[in-house]
Every structure is written in C-alpha cells, then in structure tokens.
Amino acid sequence: MRAAKAQVGDRIGAVSFVLTRADLRRYATASGDHNPIHLDEEAAKAAGLPGVIAHGMLTMGQVIWPLVEWAGGDPGAIREYTVRFARPVVVPADGGAELTVEGQVTAVAGSRVTVALAVTASGQKVLGKAQAVIELPAA
C-alpha cells in the first residue's frame, strides 16, 4: 500500500488468529513475562480469573501483523500504536481462543495513515481505543 492510494474508510482484514496455551508459553519465553496467570489454571483462578488468559501484550502484538503486511512488510512502518485492554482473552486448554481483527483507515495526513482496529475474541470486544499510525511509502 502506498500513502497516495490510502483513503479514509479503507478496510484491512478481517483476519483471524487462534491463540493456544502453547502460544502463551512461547510468548512468555520470548518476552520474559512469566506471570503464572498466563500459564497455570490454578494461578489464574486464584487471581479471580475464569481461567488462563492471554498476555495483553500477546493480543496487542498479534493483531498488528495484518497492518505490517498492508504496509508492505516493514515492521518499522508502525510509528504509533495504542490499545486499552477492555476484557481478558480466556484461552481454554482445549482448542484455544480465536481472535479477529479488522482495521479501518480513519485519517490520512501525507504519508501518515491512522488505522482504528476492532478486535474481538468469541465475538466480544477485547481491545478498546485500539489505533495505529503507519508511515507508508510516499509513491
């Protein structure tokens, strides 16, 4: 995608991902975030959660990739990225949780494009105020 071609209202996706307990373990290792509520059922329940939940930063980090692809495969194109964690993503041991993301262009200013992200798990909104500013190639 080139900046000159992006228009307010353009849509990206929807794209779906399945997060499994194995993905949570892999993210814990890669990120250094070993909070047991993401790894252990008992620890999650002791913390008052319905079960093991995904790291908020795994959800945030996962759903941005369709925008990287849209920006031409350059991860450095994502200049700003903000989310509010509205609801935990519960990841059952059997089958995991399905995340769905859809982006919509809300502003174009020169080569900078703002995209709002709608992110759901099992049909419920899990991120609020999710927005990225992407620097696109000019021409």
Partner: peptide, 28 residues
C-alpha cells in the same frame, strides 16, 4: 512468538532491502 513471518524480522538481507542496518524489531 506471533507466528509472524515478516522477513525483515528474520532475514538480514530482507531488512537491508528495506533500508535497515540489521534485523528490524516487531512493532511491540
């Protein structure tokens, strides 16, 4: 960890093709 296959995060030649001196970090 995201199952991401962006070459610029994994392959130095792909990162250089985008103008970077080394592998590029994931957005988060």
């Amino acid at each position: 960890a995201f199952g991401a296959s962006a070459p610029a995060c994994c392959d130095p030649a792909a990162a250089q093709a985008l103008g970077y001196a080394g592998l590029v970090a994931a957005p988060t």
